[in-house]
């Protein structure tokens, strides 16, 4: 997975190893969203998406990492985050992206819902090796 296009500094890597880390990930993303100047609604959407994806990495991927930073393209600034785990991967991506489908006990809204909350969404997964999801929310 290529790292996203960072503006001013290397993206920091944050562990997602236990459920307490989710709170930390949300705070990290919130700080970035505010620095980027996202509107309140966009901040909320981004943090929520990050929370869903970090929880996915924890529950389905058995833990992983989040890399997050500011990005810039076409004169716009945005916040990017990459959620990586080395879990079982997703064998049927189409199915996993469907509302209401879950391999666990969740609502099945994590992936599909998170995609609706951000501007760019990219999922790459290798069964048996892990999953990486990259999201970007651009400032309007």
């Amino acid at each position: 997975m290529t790292a996203p296009w960072t503006v001013d500094e290397e993206p920091r890597v944050h562990p997602v190893a236990r459920s307490g880390d989710l709170v930390h990930v949300r705070q990290v993303i919130r700080v970035l969203a505010q620095r980027c100047g996202l509107s309140l609604v966009d901040q909320t959407k981004l943090i929520t998406a990050a929370s869903e994806l970090a929880r996915n990495a924890l529950i389905y991927g058995g833990g992983g990492t989040v890399r997050a930073g500011l990005v810039e393209a076409n004169g716009r600034r945005g916040v990017a985050a990459v959620f990586e785990d080395s879990g079982p991967g997703i064998s049927d991506v189409g199915q996993a992206m469907t509302d209401g489908w879950t391999s666990g006990s969740g609502l099945g809204l994590g992936l599909s819902g998170a995609r609706r909350l951000v501007d760019d969404f990219e999922l790459s997964t290798v069964p048996g090796e892990g999953t990486a999801v990259t999201i970007v929310k651009w400032a309007r």
Partner: peptide
């Protein structure tokens, strides 16, 4: 519930 939270929940599908 805050407006931004409500909008986000709807978008999330909840």
């Amino acid at each position: 519930m805050r407006p931004a939270v409500a909008i986000t929940l709807v978008e999330l599908g909840l």
